[in-house]
C-alpha cells in the first residue's frame, strides 16, 4: 500500500490556483474547515479555540507574500497552500504502516485513520507542510480533495467540486483532471504557464499555480493624464484652469 502506483496515472485530480486572482480572503480555508470538520477525515480538532493560544488542524492555509523587483516596485501576492497530491509523493513512501497512500483511480493522496500510528514521519517528508497532525485523534490529517463531495451523487453536479473551489468568491481556484491534456484545467495551465512549487524537491505535484500577470502600466511613469485643453469639454477645461492656477 505504501508504494506509489507503479504506472503513470491516467486521471490526476487536482487544483489550479490563480495567484493573479486570489484576493487573500481566506474563504476557501474557512469553507474547507467547515466541510471537512464533518467529512472523510473528521473531526479537524481544535485545541483552546477561544483561549489565548488557539491551534488546530486545517488543510488549507493562506499565506501572503510581498514580491519586490530590483527597481523597488513591490506587489502583494496571496498564496493559498494545501496538499498538492504529488505524483512522487514522499509522504506515501516513508509511511511505515501503509496508512498513507495514493489512489490509483484518481491520484488523490489520503491517510487511513484506522491504520495510522501517528508517527508523524509523513509530515516531515512533505516539503510543503501539507499535513497536520491531530493531537486528539492521534493520527495524521490532510486535504482529501473533498472525496466525499466531488463524488457525492446526492449533490447537484455543479457542487461536486472541492469546498475551497465552490466557495472562492473571486474564482481563483479550479478543479479538474490534470492527467488529461485536453481538460479545462490542463489547458489553462498550458496557456498561463502554470508551474510546480519547489521543483527542486522532485515531488511532481499535481496541483499547479498560475503566476500573477505582468502589470499593465508602469507604476511610476503614469499619473492622471492631463486634460488636453483643446479637445476637452467645457467643464473639464474650467476645472483644469481652476487647478492649474
Amino acid at each position: 500500500m505504501t508504494a506509489l502506483p507503479a504506472r503513470e496515472l491516467a486521471t490526476k485530480l487536482g487544483l489550479v490556483i490563480d495567484l493573479d486572482i486570489c484576493v487573500g480572503c481566506h474563504a476557501c480555508a474557512v469553507n474547507c474547515k467547515e466541510w471537512n470538520a464533518g467529512g472523510h477525515s473528521a473531526p479537524l480538532t481544535d485545541s483552546d479555540p477561544y483561549g489565548a493560544d488557539p491551534s488546530g488542524v486545517w488543510f488549507n492555509r493562506i499565506h501572503t507574500f510581498e514580491v519586490e523587483t530590483e527597481a523597488g516596485d513591490s506587489r502583494t501576492v496571496h498564496f493559498p497552500k494545501s496538499c498538492l497530491h504529488c505524483d512522487d509523493a514522499p509522504c506515501v513512501t516513508v509511511c511505515p504502516t501503509g496508512a498513507s497512500y495514493k489512489r490509483v483511480e484518481d491520484g488523490i493522496v489520503l491517510v487511513n485513520a484506522d491504520t495510522c500510528i501517528g508517527c508523524k514521519l509523513c509530515s516531515w517528508a512533505c516539503p510543503y507542510g501539507a499535513r497536520e497532525y491531530d493531537e486528539d485523534a492521534g493520527v495524521m490529517k490532510k486535504c482529501t480533495l473533498c472525496i466525499d463531495k466531488i463524488y457525492n451523487e446526492t449533490l447537484p453536479v455543479e457542487s461536486r467540486v472541492p469546498a475551497c473551489v465552490s466557495t472562492c468568491p473571486a474564482g481563483a481556484r479550479s478543479f479538474g483532471d490534470l492527467g488529461d491534456p485536453n481538460s479545462d484545467v490542463s489547458k489553462i495551465v498550458a496557456a498561463r504557464g502554470g508551474y510546480d512549487l519547489m521543483p527542486e524537491q522532485g515531488c511532481k505535484p499535481v496541483n499547479k499555480y498560475l503566476p500573477p500577470r505582468p502589470r499593465k502600466h508602469d507604476p511610476d511613469g503614469e499619473g492622471l493624464s492631463p486634460v488636453e485643453a483643446d479637445q476637452a469639454g467645457l467643464l473639464a477645461r474650467w476645472v483644469d484652469r481652476l487647478f492649474t492656477r
Binding site: L19, H26, A29, D53, P54, S55, G56, V57, W58, R61, I62, H63, T64, F65, E66, V67, E68, T69, E70, D73, S74, R75, T76, V77, F79, K81, S123, G129, E132, Y133, E135, Y195, D196, L197, M198, P199, E200, Y209, P211, P212
Partner: peptide, 26 residues
C-alpha cells in the same frame, strides 16, 4: 522563498503575512 512560491521571476519574495496568528503544528 522564491522556489517555494514560484514567484522568483517577479522579484525578491518575503513573507508579508502568515496564514495564522498563533503557532500551529507545522
Amino acid at each position: 522563498a522564491e522556489s517555494a512560491t514560484g514567484l522568483g521571476d517577479l522579484g525578491k519574495v518575503t513573507l508579508l503575512e502568515a496564514p495564522h496568528t498563533e503557532a500551529n503544528y507545522l
